[in-house]
Amino acid sequence: MTDTTSIPKRATVYSDTPEEREFELRAAVSSYWTGGRLFIGMFAFLLASEAFAYFYLRSSNNGQLWRPNNITAPTGIGWAIEFTVVASALIALFGQVRLRRGNVLDWEVAGWTAVLGGLVATGLQVWQLTKLPFFPGASGYASCFIGWAVMNILMLLGGTYWMETTLARSLRMGGASGVDGPDQLAMTSSGQIFRANVSACTYFWGFMAVGSTLFWVMFYLI
């Protein structure tokens, strides 16, 4: 145990073998897969907390102040946000399908549309906050709505940022990145990792669409 001579004193140089590169690549690709799902899981718990607050305050209806007079946030803007988010997510999903088939341009157009949609939805959400017919502390509904609006802005900005960075990366990588061609042909490692990233991002957009639909139903319909 006191054998101090055993400390290696030796400069080694990093190297990797083809097998190791393959291993690292697979790990990186599947990390995006796992990470994307886990990220969705985290957001799901965040939204679930908001939903819990909604239903808890709704059912306890303290002081008859859950939602006096059934007042809602501006429904027109609410519908517009909902439509924009769902449409953008569908376009993003469509782009992802096109990318899998190898059509990079379609994906890029769809992606930029989704980014635009995300920004528009964020803008609408902020605008809606200035048009509320109630004071934030006026009722349980009002509080929950503000909470949701803040979360929605966070989520939309996150999803839009993610989509935008993949598109920017794609532009910068150009053809050399291996994004041209169907999945099976994207053999470069950066291309494969890139595709995993796009796929995770698109799933997150799908999750955003589902989440905002649920809250749209909660805040405007029921």
């Binding site: 607050a53 808890y56 305050l57 306890s60 209806n61 303290n62 002081g63 102040l65 859950w66 004071f135 934030p136 502390g137 006026a138 009722s139 349980g140 509904y141 009002a142 509080s143 929950c144 503000i146 909470g147």
Partner: peptide, 14 residues
């Protein structure tokens, strides 16, 4: 900050 009432029972929170 925004004066919501999530935790304020008398304003419809809990």
């Amino acid at each position: 900050t925004a004066q919501t009432a999530f935790y304020v029972t008398e304003h419809g929170g809990s």
